[in-house]
Design a protein around this nucleic acid. Structure first.
Lengths: 256, 256
DNA sequence: ACAAAAGTGTTGGATTTACACCCATGA
DNA sequence: TCATGGGTGTAAATCCAACACTTTTGT
């Protein structure tokens, strides 16, 4: 058969699923929504939805992100690093196991979004509730969601794997790119940025060496002018994300 | 509308496209096939085809790879690093611009394969010919394919962008992983591995420091026992790829 | 003997780490 | 005054680039 015979290809549904990460109370958290209908009714899932007939994949992801969080992406069509106070959004990977959705053949193009700490998420679409959950709770050895009075079980579909892939991507990307600033408000201190690294990597970093490193990496941070004492202690300089997207030299994640 | 109403989603065709890279005559080359039918008839394109109705994405990519090159992937379902003399295959990215195929809405899940230098490619499927072309020629500033008496123009569809993404991925992944060995035969010398790095990065590396670095990185190479003089000069030890997939410390790509 | 490629040794400079120490604020 | 986080200085350990030099083959 000719591979381009229009009658010869099986039809697929194509969706986008979102791994939206933020740092709240020194923990890496992901946005999850509760499913209101079968399958997996009552279980937590990643936000997502169908790609429309005339819509690009990145545009569909940006649309879902706005619907779920109100977050704007600065330029959905532009290359990855969206700067400023909008979220960062990039394609993560595509999941297409024939059995991943029991109803039909669905291929999901997962996207990764990094956002600063937000007010409460707003539920939308078919979800009857939404919340930020620590990824540690969602990805426990036995599939997560236990231990806080939440009996809803592990994430729906193959979303635990998608979330794990997104978390791993975020962990490695903040090593060699300036993406960690996407977790910060428009103006932030070196200490706040350090706490982002510590939360995402789950390690403790030396504040003195971190400060030297991050202020010495060209293009990573630019002084915003003021200071703040919102963390207590001596006032800290405020910075904004600089123009650099690739860090040279990279931040070094401690071994083990 | 409910996003899960089965009648509410638009149908898509889903394909896999392959960026198959190898190193031939000290140049990074990609496998391209000539299109036998419109659109883009007569132009070079990446190999690829439709995903079958009951087939996983990785399985479809592995199937196309065998059809086009005869290369086997050691375990299509296993995580990325396939060792030994088979090819490495991993998902690259998904391309779904509504206008990328003039006939219908096609979402293509591109995969990246790295292979050792092979005999002549064998044409298959709808391609009436196939060849290895230096990526430099395929990705010239004006879209490539000129300069060697080939008037077929730039790559079909958005394949130039897919190829560029695949090359960029390969260039960065050999930095921090042992993937460069996927370009080598089962047994190879340090010099042959160095020429892989030089071809992929397009730089010259110091043979002495490279040797020390690569033999000193734990798990990268294991001695295979023999020696060879196939490169001339003093006999060189033969090595096999070691078990390590992540290199620590990474190989350093020279700046600019 | 010579060319060519494989390896080893050494050295100076850069980077990283660990930690002593000082600074500026709120309570 | 003390606790708290912000920031600088410095010395030891480590890593890396550059290159002199030796080894082992083919011609």
């Amino acid at each position: 058969m000719s591979p381009y015979d229009p009658s010869a290809f099986p039809p697929f549904a194509v969706t986008v699923d979102l791994v939206v990460l933020t740092v709240r109370r020194d923990a890496l958290c992901a946005l999850v929504v509760r499913r209101g209908e079968p399958p997996f009714q009552g279980r937590w899932a990643l936000p997502g939805g169908f790609v429309r007939g005339d819509e690009d994949l990145g545009a569909a992801a940006a649309r879902e992100l706005v619907e779920e969080t109100g977050l704007c992406v600065h330029d959905p069509a532009a290359p990855p690093p969206a700067l400023g106070n909008g979220a960062h959004l990039e394609q993560l990977a595509t999941y297409g196991d024939p059995d991943r959705d029991p109803r039909m053949r669905v291929v999901s193009v997962a996207h990764l979004a990094l956002a600063p700490d937000l007010p409460a998420p707003r539920a939308g679409g078919d979800a009857n509730s939404a919340r930020w959950a620590p990824v540690e709770d969602l990805l426990g050895q036995d599939g997560g969601a236990e231990g806080e009075g939440d009996q809803s079980g592990p994430l729906a579909f193959d979303h635990a794997r998608i979330l794990a892939d997104g978390v791993e991507r975020a962990r490695s990307k903040i090593e060699y790119s300036s993406l960690a600033t996407a977790f910060c408000p428009p103006e932030f201190t070196v200490g706040e940025l350090r706490r982002v690294y510590e939360a995402v990597w789950g390690v403790a970093l030396d504040p003195r060496n971190f400060h030297r490193k991050v202020t010495g990496t060209p293009g990573f941070l630019v002084p915003a002018g003021g200071t703040t004492t919102r963390q207590g202690g001596r006032p800290a300089q405020l910075f904004r994300a600089g123009g650099a997207t690739l860090l040279n030299p990279p931040m070094l994640r401690p071994e083990i």
